[in-house]
């Protein structure tokens, strides 16, 4: 049996955890579909491609963001909706705010260079452009608990992908957009990297974005806030 945390804002109580039988040989998304069509048509979830590329079926499995279509359920598993996303119903969450971070970070090419990329430049953006926007990294990020305006890992990875792209003539636009509630707010805990189903490393991307920011004249606020007990302005 697995446990699914269900939510319906119109019911009282609006959240209950229910147990469901596992079917041998089915991944978690296939199991959801089987439960919905045979046991409980009101069970609500999302899932489209069934093969790990559309990014629509991520849920929390035992507290860890996971693509349902790529996970084999085990007895005792607890399935919940993604953290840090408003829950609409059962496992369906509202991704509007998470996706809006792409607008805020302006993750696109602002002005195109007419000189094509070379292989070296391509290799620096290939992995980042494998992102499927499943929001698993967003749901794993502890910064969200203290700063809900934080841009989050996938927007920052995408920011790196575009500011590194040799096609982009105006990388400063994106760099400027990610200074506030962006690169400097990350704690570098690496949770995002651990949960990415595409093997992307947002933590490393964020560290690279920090270097890039400093190289482009932005201040590192983490240094300004650092105090070693000396006041350098007074001299010794």
């Amino acid at each position: 049996m697995i446990k699914i945390k269900r939510f319906d804002r119109k019911k009282e109580p609006n959240s209950v955890t229910m147990e469901y039988p596992i079917t041998e040989g089915l991944n978690l998304l296939a199991l959801f579909y089987k439960l919905k069509s045979t046991l409980d048509p009101s069970l609500s979830f999302t899932g489209v491609c069934r093969s790990g590329v559309c990014g629509s079926c991520s849920v929390m499995v035992n507290g860890k963001p996971t693509l349902a279509c790529s996970y084999t359920p085990k007895s005792g598993d607890l399935i919940e909706p993604l953290d840090y996303h408003p829950v609409k119903r059962d496992l369906i969450v509202d991704k509007t705010k998470a996706l809006h971070t792409l607008n805020q970070a302006q993750t696109w090419i602002h002005k195109t260079n007419n000189i094509p990329r070379d292989t070296q430049n391509l290799h620096r953006i290939e992995r980042q452009s494998n992102c499927i926007l499943c929001s698993s990294c967003f749901a794993s990020c502890p910064v969200m608990a203290v700063n809900s305006d934080f841009l989050g890992p996938f927007a920052l990875t995408r920011a790196l992908r575009y500011t590194t792209d040799s096609l982009e003539l105006q990388p400063l636009d994106t760099l400027t957009a990610i200074q506030q509630n962006g690169v400097w707010d990350c704690t570098l805990c690496g949770e995002c990297t651990a949960v990415c189903p595409q093997g992307i490393d947002p933590k490393m991307d964020i560290m690279n974005m920090r270097s890039k920011s400093v190289q482009n004249g932005f201040d590192d606020p983490t240094l300004a806030n650092m105090s070693f007990g000396f006041d350098f302005t007074q001299g010794f």
Binding site: I109, C131, R158
Partner: peptide, 27 residues
């Protein structure tokens, strides 16, 4: 092609450009 992810990378690039150009989405 774009590795084994041609469709994925085309789709996401189109989406990024829609955001850039202010296309309104009704999801």
């Amino acid at each position: 092609y774009a590795q084994d992810y041609t469709g994925l990378k085309i789709l996401h690039t189109l989406y990024d450009n829609c955001l850039k150009n202010g296309v309104i989405f009704k999801n």
